[in-house]
């Protein structure tokens, strides 16, 4: 008989860890953490350990996953993700999500963006279950451990398929920044439709981005970089920003250095290709 994977073996350390964290998530995920709700003053939650969240590196964006997504952007209850920004009187959200990290991976980018953009709500979308769990646990721990200064209340993560369901979450012109950091390269010709940047998907990104909004891309694969630049440059609603602009933008700086993939590339002394694009005004309808 084939041995069960460690994650499903009740005797394994990984199994115990995951169960424990899952209970923790259930309890703390949607709770507005402040000093009064801390079980014991000053009790710290350990940051999650990546080794317990291993899973396959890729997920097929075309298959039917068990996903939760709202029927429409109006149906989305954001207060569960950002309880700190809920108006206690009428239950409405004080702010809307304006920055999206598509394929946020282990969440390093968001964690650095959080203090840099304290007035924005930042959402990471990730399709892999365990990776999403890791980011959730990481945010729970960070929020808990910085409760006195309300840290990291403006970031959160969703398990989702952004290629299919982005418009279910965001309305027209809602976003000001979208990040595509180290996306899956899908080298094979016939898998190019699975790439996160295609000319047909760019029209949907243009819909959720406001005029003047920015698309950030970074990759260590030259071929993919050229592909993304080609498609974004060809799209009538995007225009590439200059090298000078990139050098003066704090997000580019964070993107180069904060993401887990970015650090890995750094360790391996690989190249990092950056390209940023501005969402142009919608032209007159013919």
């Amino acid at each position: 008989m084939k041995a069960k994977p460690l994650s499903q073996d009740p005797g394994s350390k990984r199994y115990a860890y995951r169960i424990n964290k899952e209970e923790n998530r259930k309890e703390l995920k949607h709770v507005k953490i402040d000093e009064s709700t801390l079980v014991q003053e000053g009790q710290k939650i350990d940051l999650p350990k990546k080794r317990y969240y291993r899973q396959r590196a890729h997920s097929n964006p075309f298959s039917d996953h068990q996903l939760e997504y709202p029927v429409s952007p109006q149906d989305m209850d954001w207060s569960k993700l950002y309880p700190y920004y809920k108006n206690a009187e009428n239950g409405d959200m004080i702010k809307k999500v304006t920055i999206a990290d598509i394929g946020c991976g282990f969440g390093g980018l968001m964690i650095d963006l959080s203090p840099a953009f304290p007035d924005d709500l930042i959402l990471g979308m990730e399709i892999r279950v365990q990776v999403t769990n890791y980011v959730e646990d990481r945010i729970i721990a960070l929020r808990n451990n910085t409760a006195s200064r309300h840290g990291f209340q403006n970031i959160n993560v969703l398990r989702g398929n952004a290629m299919k369901f982005l418009p279910n979450f965001f309305g027209k012109g809602q976003l000001s920044k979208m990040f595509f950091c180290f996306p899956d390269p899908h080298f094979k010709q016939r898998k190019h439709k699975a790439r996160i940047i295609t000319n047909t998907l760019l029209s949907e990104y243009a819909y959720v981005l406001k005029e003047g909004g920015i698309v950030y891309t970074i990759t260590d694969v030259k071929d993919l970089h050229e592909w993304m630049v080609k498609h974004l440059e060809e799209h009538p609603l995007f225009k590439r920003l200059s090298k000078e602009w990139e050098e003066n933008d704090k997000c580019v700086e964070i993107m180069r250095n904060a993401t887990e993939e970015g650090k890995k590339v750094e360790r391996k002394k690989g190249d990092k290709f950056v390209a940023c694009f501005i969402r142009l005004p919608t032209p007159t309808i013919l």
Binding site: S72, P73, P167, K172, S203, A206, Y207, H235, L237
Partner: peptide, 9 residues
């Protein structure tokens, strides 16, 4: 390339 809207329901 200009999406007008989606009909959600």
């Amino acid at each position: 390339f200009i999406v007008d809207k989606w009909l959600f329901g």
